[in-house]
Amino acid sequence: MTAPLLVIVPTRGRPQNAARLVQAFEDTDSLNAELVFVADHDDPELPAYHEAAPRLLIHRDGTGQGMTAALNWAAGLYDGIYDHLGFMGDDHLPRTVGWDAHVLGALDREEPSVVYGNDLLQGGALPTAAFLPSRLVRALGFMAPPVLRHLYVDNFWLELGQALGGLRYLPDVVIEHIHPAAGKVAMDARYEAVNSSEADALDRRAWLEFRHGYGFAAALRRVRDEYGAREAGL
């Protein structure tokens, strides 16, 4: 029997973070959530990942360019199996005991919702870790816009939840983001690659074109069609 919530963690070059996250799930009694890591096929740390991660998917098309492709690929594999799908980075750590029960409580409603906790960095401003109903993911056709490689996915989740009237921020549910911007970890090659000015410019342009072009409106239309305007209050 599967848990109601699957948390997908795209990762590269950080098996120690995978082990740390597995331990955090145990420490917070995450009985309603399961964890799966998605590593690139060419990651030199794959042997260590097999040791650290009880459940590991190998993304054959992954080449370390960003996490969106791996996230969407894994979401497509599991959205018919789990009621809800979540994303955490390999630098997130749940801190609140029973955090998963709080997340599921916020997701337990008829309308489409985007739920997130307090990452101790962005707080309510951005869902750097996010949880969505599988029904919503199926309606969208993705968990994150495929035009994005790594950045601005949290902006999408924020605006999606706002547009649907289903954004749910849980300030007392701490899912800490251990990020260089918070001064909690040193910048490494992985952070530098996905946060470079070039990478930021590419994803920012792609996000703005998606947001103000046809992409975002079409995604909302698919959700409205799935849930029904009356049911979703859209």
Rank of each mutant, 00 (worst) to 15 (best):
L5M: 05
L5F: 13
V7P: 12
V7L: 14
P10K: 06
L21D: 09
L21T: 06
E26M: 05
T28W: 03
E34D: 08
E34T: 08
V36G: 09
D40C: 15
D43Y: 13
P44C: 03
A48S: 14
A52L: 04
A52E: 10
A53V: 12
P54S: 13
L57G: 04
L57V: 03
I58Y: 11
G62N: 02
T63Q: 15
M67R: 05
T68L: 13
N72Q: 13
G80H: 14
D83E: 05
H84W: 07
D91F: 03
H92N: 11
H92R: 05
L93Y: 05
T96E: 04
G98R: 09
W99I: 04
W99Y: 01
L104K: 15
L107D: 06
E111A: 14
E111Y: 08
E111K: 12
Y116V: 00
G117E: 10
D119W: 00
L120D: 07
G123H: 01
L126I: 00
L126Y: 00
L126C: 00
P127W: 00
P133S: 14
P133K: 06
V137E: 07
R138N: 13
R138H: 06
G141V: 03
G141H: 11
M143F: 10
V147A: 12
L148C: 08
R149P: 04
D154W: 00
L158M: 06
Q162F: 13
Q162N: 02
A163G: 02
L167T: 01
Y169S: 00
Y169M: 05
D172Y: 13
P180V: 12
P180I: 03
V185I: 12
V194C: 11
V194G: 03
E198C: 11
A199W: 14
A201K: 05
L202W: 12
D203R: 09
A217V: 13
V223Y: 09
Y227K: 12
A229S: 11
